[in-house]
Design a protein around this nucleic acid. Structure first.
Lengths: 134, 134
DNA sequence: TTGTTCTGTAATAAAAATAATTACAGAATG
DNA sequence: CATTCTGTAATTATTTTTATTACAGAACAA
């Protein structure tokens, strides 16, 4: 299940896409209704990925570094999910069972297939598209 | 992120697809390396959906009710995820903000689009296919 | 310069979701 | 009628996620 971070990142970028100047983490957090520290964490990842720039200090905040039409959801997906769509079970399946022995690799394959399907769809959607929906 | 239940259900059905007789929840749990009660819970859902039949009592257990080639991952996905792929955030976004006010509906739309992409892919994969990979 | 308002980040605590365990009634078998 | 299964509820434990606290450093403005 796709978690809250993906939604948070989308919300942040959609906000930034509507405004000219810098937006503070508190303002953004107020719109999403989460803690500002979480916003700053996501922004630091977005900044590292080149999607936003940040000004520190008084009247500081973040703004988009690229046009909304250049930010694809597939990019964001990759930024947020370093691990993969499927959570691999914490318990190792029984390696003395034929199915248990092979299931991890099979699930890994399914993960890849599912992810490709998702990414293909998300590749076609940009922050600009979401702005148009607001 | 897709959670452990989907993997559990796939593992269960793959095991059942390889055996003739009934398999007990303990045996299945031993292969997956989880608690038998969790297996019984998933099986009760699978039974309700018509994919397995169960015999209670001594030497009881479960077996497939339909051919492995008739069980699509898209079916299983629907059985496991009544809620949806995206977890909708627990906190309601700020309704006094234009983006906050609209973002829930937008995320709902994205959820639907993502889900359709996944289901389309999963529709083409059956338990039989997974058995061939074991 | 100095107070104010931002960010960055670490550390801790709280809350929520997930999985494990315990317990026990009931079903089928031998 | 003892044994070995399932079904299910209730509780506990674990893990993950989110929130909070805390504080150093940056930029600005009086």
């Amino acid at each position: 299940m796709i978690n809250g971070r993906f939604a948070t990142v989308i919300h942040i970028l959609t906000l930034l896409g509507r405004e000219e100047g810098e937006l503070s983490s508190s303002y953004i957090a107020g719109s999403i209704n989460i803690n500002p520290v979480l916003v700053r964490k996501e922004i630091s990842i977005l900044r590292e990925a080149g999607f936003v720039t940040t000004l520190e200090g008084k009247n500081g905040g973040s703004r988009l570094a690229v046009a909304p039409s250049k930010i694809r959801l597939s990019d964001l997906y990759k930024v947020v999910y370093n691990e993969g769509l499927f959570a691999h079970s914490r318990n190792l399946p029984n390696q003395h069972c034929a199915v248990g022995k092979r299931i991890s690799a099979i699930m890994e394959g399914l993960n890849t297939e599912a992810e490709q399907a998702l990414l293909k769809r998300f590749h076609a959607i940009t922050i600009k598209d979401l702005l148009d929906r607001v």
